[in-house]
Simulated scan of single mutants.
Amino acid sequence: MTSTELAREALPQKIKQTIKRSLGPWGVFLEGFMRHPVMVGSIIPSSRFTINRMLKPVDWANCKLFVEYGPGVGTFCRPVLDRLPRDGQLIVIDTNPLFIEYLRKTISDSRFIAVHGSASDVEEIVRAHGHEKADYVLSGLPFSTLPDGIGPAIAAATHRVIRKGGAFLVYQFTPKARSYMARHFQRIDDALEPINVPPCFLWWGWKDEDED
């Protein structure tokens, strides 16, 4: 291959990188969606209305470990870190290495840990970082498109890892995730956030003190 042919072949890649840099985190999010649409779920990050409403019930003063599944480019990460106590920790878990690499490069907070892995392994991941239980777990994973058996496994593992008094916070575009949650969480609060693209369901599955 001649130098001219190599240059022509590299040109689309250069254009792609230029567009990606100009879009910033939106470019990374778009690329992640294009590579793994089944795991990302939406082409547009959550609105600030969804973020604020989803996080409002959290008892931040008593939150030592907050876990997030599928953080993407950190749409929730920074609001969580803004609210988290100084001695708290945020662990995010994603199967997409593109997102994990981006988060590690852009979030320097010592309370923040980005893990390339599966949410179904949350118990092992939490223990590996010195914790027995999580106070809250947040998920925007598209449960309706996950491979068979993965959604129920994640819901079960999440219930086990959350401390009594904690909660599983879920935002989705379809109601399927709620059926998985209901197998384990006796009390689930529901809401709908219309100012989001698209509008999304919000659920808070509480692990009450009297639960096993």
Results as ranks from 00 to 15, higher is better:
residue 44 I to E: 12
residue 166 G to H: 01
residue 204 W to C: 10
residue 46 S to C: 13
residue 113 I to T: 08
residue 138 L to H: 06
residue 65 L to T: 01
residue 65 L to I: 04
residue 59 D to N: 11
residue 73 V to T: 08
residue 183 R to A: 14
residue 135 D to K: 06
residue 11 L to S: 11
residue 98 L to Q: 07
residue 99 F to D: 05
residue 68 E to C: 00
residue 165 G to K: 04
residue 100 I to F: 06
residue 12 P to D: 08
residue 201 F to D: 09
residue 205 G to F: 05
residue 109 D to K: 01
residue 62 N to Y: 03
residue 129 H to M: 10
residue 90 L to K: 02
residue 111 R to K: 11
residue 67 V to D: 00
residue 75 T to F: 05
residue 143 F to M: 07
residue 179 S to H: 05
residue 11 L to V: 06
residue 87 D to E: 04
residue 98 L to P: 08
residue 191 A to N: 13
residue 136 Y to K: 01
residue 130 G to F: 05
residue 16 K to Y: 08
residue 73 V to L: 02
residue 107 I to M: 06
residue 91 I to Y: 02
residue 113 I to D: 01
residue 79 P to W: 00
residue 80 V to M: 00
residue 151 G to E: 09
residue 139 S to C: 13
residue 6 L to S: 13
residue 175 P to H: 10
residue 57 P to H: 00
residue 140 G to W: 05
residue 38 V to K: 15
residue 56 K to Y: 05
residue 3 S to W: 12
residue 197 V to L: 15
residue 25 P to H: 12
residue 120 S to D: 05
residue 11 L to C: 06
residue 35 R to Q: 14
residue 157 A to R: 03
residue 77 C to W: 01
residue 127 R to T: 09
residue 26 W to S: 15
residue 2 T to C: 14
residue 27 G to C: 08
residue 17 Q to N: 11
residue 30 L to N: 12
residue 195 I to A: 13
residue 206 W to A: 11
residue 92 V to Q: 00
residue 152 P to I: 06
residue 145 T to H: 10
residue 199 P to L: 10
residue 101 E to C: 02
residue 183 R to Q: 15
residue 151 G to K: 11
residue 185 F to M: 14
residue 100 I to S: 03
residue 132 E to Y: 11
residue 63 C to L: 07
residue 204 W to Y: 10
residue 42 S to H: 06
residue 172 Q to R: 07
residue 177 A to F: 05
residue 163 R to P: 06
residue 63 C to T: 11
residue 131 H to C: 04
residue 121 D to S: 12
residue 112 F to L: 01
residue 166 G to L: 01
residue 131 H to N: 08
residue 153 A to W: 00
residue 17 Q to V: 04
residue 180 Y to H: 15
residue 13 Q to L: 14
residue 181 M to N: 12
residue 28 V to N: 05
residue 9 E to S: 14
residue 156 A to S: 06
residue 144 S to I: 07
residue 60 W to G: 09
residue 148 D to V: 08
residue 108 S to F: 01
residue 199 P to I: 12
residue 54 M to I: 13
residue 90 L to C: 06
residue 200 C to Y: 12
residue 151 G to T: 07
residue 15 I to W: 07
residue 28 V to I: 10
residue 189 D to H: 15
residue 42 S to Y: 06
residue 34 M to W: 11
residue 162 I to N: 02
residue 27 G to P: 09
residue 39 M to Y: 08
residue 22 S to F: 15
residue 179 S to K: 07
residue 162 I to S: 02
residue 196 N to S: 12
residue 95 T to K: 00
residue 194 P to Q: 12
residue 45 P to K: 09
residue 10 A to L: 14
residue 168 F to I: 07
residue 207 K to R: 13
residue 15 I to K: 10
residue 127 R to F: 09
residue 124 E to Y: 07
residue 159 H to Y: 09
